[in-house]
Design a protein around this nucleic acid. Sequence first.
DNA 1: CTTGACCTTCCAACGATGGCAAGGGGCATT
DNA 2: AATGCCCCTTGCCATCGTTGGAAGGTCAAG
Lengths: 150, 150
Amino acid sequence: MNIGQAAKASGVSAKMIRYYEQTGLIPVADRKESGYRDYSDADVHRFRFIRRARDLGFSVAEIQDLLSLWNDRSRQSADVKRIASAHIAVLNARIASLRQMSETLQTLIACCAGDNRPDCPILMDLEETSEAPPTGVRSAGGVGQLKSRV
Amino acid sequence: MNIGQAAKASGVSAKMIRYYEQTGLIPVADRKESGYRDYSDADVHRFRFIRRARDLGFSVAEIQDLLSLWNDRSRQSADVKRIASAHIAVLNARIASLRQMSETLQTLIACCAGDNRPDCPILMDLEETSEAPPTGVRSAGGVGQLKSRV
DNA sequence: CTTGACCTTCCAACGATGGCAAGGGGCATT
DNA sequence: AATGCCCCTTGCCATCGTTGGAAGGTCAAG
């Protein structure tokens, strides 16, 4: 099977298949005489696994771990569960952060007349006119310091 | 004011201030004789605006629009509201996508014994063994095709 | 044999940020 | 004045996952 067919069958683009091979996520593919990569159904199976994991938001590094567990017949499901649990914590943190943003913004939007006048509470909030404290924490109600990847 | 002081006062790192200047988000700064960038309180005010907008998840491109509205005394608040509303829609879409992932994963985790045996419903789901239809939509209950940036 | 669809490799870009390195300025203490 | 230290300057690289393009080789059908 050529890479294009494997891509269609798995839902992983040919570009990404090559990339995954290059980065070591998947083993180097066999080649036909022409130099074309040659894939089996088992390979496609693995690509589908990868795609599904990516759909669930796992990073490539996590997928690497999941793949090796998948291939390990003597694995312990606790290991899989641990990875998944760690990941869900990250997901939930992102959700919380986005929700915070969304709610703040929603409040501001609700206060904005949205007409032809220039006065706008959204811009006023962004100004955060509090000339006050360079000292410590920002004025209450703010969205807070978001360091995490969102 | 030097860039470091402006950075501390605004919460935008010196790196990012230079980056914003380079990409045209902010005007090129005046320089002192020494070659150091020189910032005013008004500049810091603008940096704080930018940082606040980023905290709310606005992209740099959106911030560009917001900034020009901010500087436009004849602006219409409807324009601001439109940008904010579009952004909140994106935020909510991301949230929905992440929630979908989180819930799916939560279900799988709940089904996983998490012991020393290899059997694991999480891996089984990732396999998505349905050899069935390359035809059209994937089997029901899946997390669906997530094209959007999450 | 030609054409078009596919494959190959390599290189670059995105967005926002951090890090490192080499060289110069500014200021306070010897 | 000289030393030391911190800050500034520019520039390049890395991240992370993915997509795009260019330049060229292969395959199968017409």
